[in-house]
């Protein structure tokens, strides 16, 4: 199908974009990479009166190191993140996940701000924003404010923003880690995940000092499993550790089912992926798959 009629504005500053959204009086939509919005427009599942295209705002596209954080502009394309040496060295879990983000042609257009705002419960970047406890800088009519990723995702395809708000940039703290893994199963490569897990660990000689765990595809939003993280702290590293981790994860999550996969199957996948992820996270760097 084709989109219904809309007016189109292409501002060159964030201020002008917010003003255009305010003027649209709740009938405006932000167009970033368009890889989720255009299908919705083509199906006429959304019919905004005004489309505010951010692609002319150059200052929204960047990846930069800020002390112990990496800041990424909202309009930065997935492909740029996939290729970035800075992301590869400072945010390796994200770097590993990027090739699972849809397909090359989608990654060439899709943006991080768009993916987070779309808030798909089975998309990689929303889950990673939880893993890293990222903070989103958002601009609205009353200025800029910062929203923690854990407060951002409200429900499936629903974030906490007002209609006039625009995500401007996202800051990812660099994790103190010496082991990590990203695992995902999708029906076809590049599809949204049936289940996925990201793990980061900081380990001592024989125990886990600290850990981060996030999952997706099993609930209405991605989840950070803080309870499991607490249970991992101080736990002994031995051959049974990946199995124990798998049990901790599956006992803390109750997967949703849908037409793509039953709840039981997703729960099973999550357990398997958790075991595999911990094996990888604990493996020596040279043994990584």
């Amino acid at each position: 199908m084709k989109p219904a009629k809309f007016d189109y504005v292409a501002p060159t500053t964030v201020d002008a974009a917010v003003e255009a959204l305010r003027a649209a009086n709740g009938e405006g939509k932000v167009l970033a990479g368009g890889q989720s919005l255009l299908p919705l427009l083509n199906f006429r599942m959304t019919r905004p009166a005004v489309l505010v295209d951010l692609n002319g705002i150059r200052e929204l596209s960047f990846i930069e190191l800020r002390g112990d954080r990496v800041a990424i502009g909202a309009l930065t394309r997935h492909r740029e993140i996939e290729q970035s040496p800075l992301i590869a060295s400072k945010l390796p879990v994200m770097a590993a996940a990027m090739r699972h983000v849809a397909h090359l042609a989608i990654r060439n257009r899709g943006t991080i701000g768009g993916s987070l705002s779309h808030a798909d419960p089975a998309a990689e970047l929303p889950m990673l924003s939880l893993l890293y406890s990222a903070s989103l800088s958002v601009q609205g009519p009353s200025g800029r404010r910062t929203i923690a990723a854990e407060d951002f995702f409200v429900d499936a395809l629903t974030n906490c923003l007002e209609p006039e708000d625009i995500v401007v940039e996202i800051e990812f703290p660099i994790l103190q880690q010496n082991g990590w893994a990203f695992e995902e199963v999708a029906r076809r490569f590049g599809d949204f995940a049936l289940a996925s897990i990201a793990v980061s660990v900081r380990r001592g000689a024989s125990t886990i000092k600290d850990a981060r765990v996030a999952v997706m595809g099993v609930a209405d939003t991605p989840l950070r499993l803080k309870e499991v993280e607490g249970q991992l702290r101080g736990i002994a590293i031995d051959d049974q550790m990946p199995d124990r981790f798998s049990e901790l994860v599956t006992s803390s999550v109750s997967a949703n089912g849908d037409l793509h996969a039953s709840a039981e199957y997703r729960q099973h996948l999550l357990g398997q992926l958790a075991r595999r992820a911990m094996q990888t996270a604990l493996a020596a760097e040279s043994d990584r798959r």
Binding site: G34, Q35, L38, P39, N42, F43, R79, H103, L104, A105, I106, N108, R109
Partner: peptide
């Protein structure tokens, strides 16, 4: 709607779905 890839073209050298 961006699933089949038949409409893929290069825009400034990068492959994109022209329906999206």
């Amino acid at each position: 709607h961006g699933v089949c890839g038949a409409c893929t073209v290069l825009v400034n050298g990068d492959s994109v779905r022209s329906c999206l």
